[in-house]
Computed example of a mutant assay.
Amino acid sequence: MGSKIDDSQLMGMVAELFPALDRQKHKGEAGRVGVIGGSEVYTGAPFFSAITTMRVGCDQTHVFCAKDAAIPIKSYSPDLIVHPTLDGKNAEKDVSELYERLNVLIVGPGLGRTDSTMQITERLIGKAKEKELPIVVDADGLWLINQKPDVIKGYSKAILTPNVMEAKRLWKAMEFPEDSWTPNGENVKKLSQAMGNVAIVVKGSTDTISDGINSLESGAEFGLKRCGGQGDIMTGALGTFLIWANQAKKDGKNQLIQALGPLCCAAYAASILTRRCSKLAFEDLGRSMIASDMLAKIPAVVKELQNCKK
């Protein structure tokens, strides 16, 4: 956009992302998410991502994980639908046949980096692109993109969520000089353009967002404890907000959503929510804070964000 956007406009946009609740709606109208992730070693990451999608407000979330990850993830919450199919012989069919039910796909939390996992993930991303399913890529999903950028390059419904070091690896993969990388708005925009205008949010002391055309920064205060799992929480929030932002774009709702596009708007909303949860949890617990404590803050932050215009 030509003129500078102030924080009050952005927060008003975030408030308008939340769909109205009424007694006439049925299960699924607030969104269905799929999370591809979870391995024998990493079961917390897909849980944090998946449960956040529901705490923010989507109706149903499926987790597609390795067999050895399924029972731990199921035990964390009965609210998630867990499919122990990712390392099975028919993984591509078993996962992709459920794409028709989903509004967005999150790829990467706790995925692991074995060759077989990377191969099936590449094929599952391809199937999602065929269905024009919006895709959020994080964590080990970014490792795949770093090795094979063409897997996602040019797909306008995708958003990548690297931290500063992961973004530096992508920068190098796009053949920019490695020593020229700094996580500023100009470079994130260049990186997005090099990826074929795939949207990117680089997480750091300030979260920097760009789809190669529009750019935003989210610098809201956050807690000082940098515990594991915070990125997974942001990824889950982004999944739900992206469903709502896409619907708001179709509805012609809010000029900022029309101008900036659903990917940038959803990323900004997810960043604000995650930072606010981190701040509140840190205020309570200080250095003892863990990611689970942030989950407990999501309901209050959701209420605050959706009412911020009132």
Rank of each mutant, 00 (worst) to 15 (best):
P162H: 12
C308Q: 13
E217I: 05
N103C: 02
T161L: 13
I233P: 10
S180H: 09
V33L: 15
R113V: 06
Q255A: 05
P78Y: 04
M11D: 03
V63N: 09
L191K: 05
W171K: 12
N197Q: 05
E92H: 09
D211G: 00
V95P: 07
A248E: 02
A237C: 04
T52C: 00
E100A: 14
K250R: 01
S192R: 13
Q147F: 00
R55N: 06
K297R: 14
D6Q: 09
L216W: 00
I73T: 04
P149K: 09
V41E: 14
R32Q: 14
I81R: 10
A69K: 01
M294T: 14
E221Y: 02
A269R: 06
D140R: 01
Y268L: 07
I298C: 02
P177F: 13
A69L: 03
V201T: 11
Q247D: 09
N184E: 10
Q60N: 08
I298D: 00
S205A: 11
V198R: 15
E97H: 13
A220I: 03
K4N: 08
M165P: 08
W244C: 00
I5L: 13
T121W: 00
Y155K: 12
F282M: 02
I233L: 15
D232T: 06
S96H: 11
V151A: 07
L238R: 01
V164M: 15
M11A: 03
G239H: 09
A296N: 14
D179I: 14
L105V: 13
M289R: 01
Y268D: 00
G219N: 12
V95T: 08
K309D: 07
A70F: 05
V136I: 14
A167W: 10
L263V: 01
G44L: 03
K89D: 10
S215W: 02
A50Y: 02
A266L: 11
S156K: 15
K309R: 15
F47H: 11
S180L: 05
G236V: 09
V136Y: 02
A291H: 03
V151Q: 06
P19A: 13
G31M: 14
K189E: 11
L86G: 05
G110T: 07
V164W: 15
